[in-house]
């Protein structure tokens, strides 16, 4: 098992496996095929793009344009259509090109998908997956770089997934498609090109199960999405300074695997949470609140959060670099909770 593929390829593989396994699975979104309706492409079954980030590449070629649908630019109706199709028997995977466009489709997500089952007394299932890329770091500015999973996590009725590696991306996406609840699947743009080991076959990773990405005994670092990779880098640097960090990846924010996080804190007695969201009402704030409520006696130091600042994402490269939590920011936070400034790189 040594095949290395990128996160984009892993997601692509998951979508194809899901579509092969269950013909109710369909894909919809802007440019998920590209060029639909153009005779010179359709006659030869050529797609113009296969998704803005190529995640659905080849899907229309294999499964046809009835199951892989280019949509007009109409986010609210694209996701809303996904909700309706899910309720009535399909299992749609909807792509929203950037999570920032939640602005247009939040009604479908928050008022329709999330509420349907509850407000109709448990009669309906909404087996819908809405995939959306997120995150800063590539010069796209304030309306294409946000990290909005925290906002969505606060809505009951939605499941929220944020993978941190190609392996997890594939297994979690397949689990999301199998799941009978609406799942909002956040894909870190900065991980799209990351390569990792991924088995070829069908496998799922259960929603609601965290993973310890690196075992350690001195401090727990809970990190989300691409921040897991930053936390692992920080942990390597910390190891060289004699600090043994444990990196915990919740993998899904809703449901949240509190047990794994609490068990880790019980062992290390110190907690840093790394989250690319803006700090207020963030996943980091939420996890910090849970841990201090349930494990206050296990804490030897105040919990430290590492978030992006309370600002929109700036375009200018040096400002954007400052905006995104770095390995150095993580090390500084760890230095505070272990009360050892000597570990901060100079």
């Amino acid at each position: 098992m040594s095949r290395q593929i990128t996160t984009v390829q892993a997601l692509n593989e998951a979508i194809k496996l899901a579509m092969r396994a269950d013909e109710r699975v369909i894909v919809m979104g802007e440019d998920v095929v590209g060029g639909t309706g153009l005779p010179h492409l359709e006659e030869q079954n050529i797609e113009a793009v296969g998704g803005a980030f190529r995640v659905t590449k080849g899907c229309s070629v294999e499964f046809g344009r009835e199951r892989v649908l280019d949509t007009p630019i109409s986010e609210n109706t694209i996701v809303g259509t996904g909700v309706g199709a899910a309720i009535t028997g399909l299992r749609p995977i909807v792509e929203v090109m950037f999570n920032d466009f939640l602005g247009y489709c939040l009604d479908a997500v928050m008022n329709q998908a999330a509420k349907f089952r509850y407000m109709y007394g448990g009669k309906a299932n909404v087996p819908l997956v809405v995939r959306m890329p997120f995150g800063a770091g590539y010069g796209a500015g304030a309306q294409h770089s946000q990290t909005l999973y925290s906002m969505v996590t606060s809505v009951p009725g939605l499941k929220v997934v944020v993978p941190s590696s190609p392996y997890d991306a594939k297994g979690l996406l397949l689990a999301a498609v199998e799941d009978n609840d609406p799942v909002i699947f956040f894909e870190s743009i900065s991980l799209y090109g990351l390569k990792g080991e991924v088995p070829e076959g069908y496998y799922t990773i259960p929603l609601g199960k965290a993973e310890i990405k690196r075992a350690g005994s001195d401090v727990t670092i809970v990190a989300i999405g691409n921040m897991v990779q930053r936390a692992l880098q920080a942990a390597e640097q910390l190891a060289a300074k004699g600090i043994d960090a444990e990196v915990v990846d919740p993998r899904t924010l809703s449901p949240l695997d509190e047990d794994t996080i609490l068990a880790s804190v019980e062992k290390t007695n110190r907690l840093v949470i790394v989250d690319e969201s803006n700090p207020r009402c963030s996943a980091a704030a939420d996890i910090a609140a849970i841990v201090q409520e349930k494990a206050f006696d296990n804490l030897d130091a105040p919990i430290k959060r590492v978030n992006a600042p309370h600002t929109p994402v700036p375009f200018s490269k040096p400002l954007e670099d400052l905006y995104t939590p770095s390995a150095e920011n993580i090390i500084r936070a760890v230095a505070e909770v272990v009360n050892d400034e000597s570990i901060i790189p100079v």
């Binding site: 010069g139 796209a140 500015g141 304030a142 309306q143 294409h144 700036p314 375009f315 200018s316 490269k317 040096p318 400002l319």
Partner: peptide, 16 residues
């Protein structure tokens, strides 16, 4: 170019 002399002080970029 994301420079301080830009019309949005470099905070907006081409899209803004």
């Amino acid at each position: 170019a994301g420079k301080a002399t830009g019309c949005d002080k470099g905070k907006g970029g081409s899209l803004h």
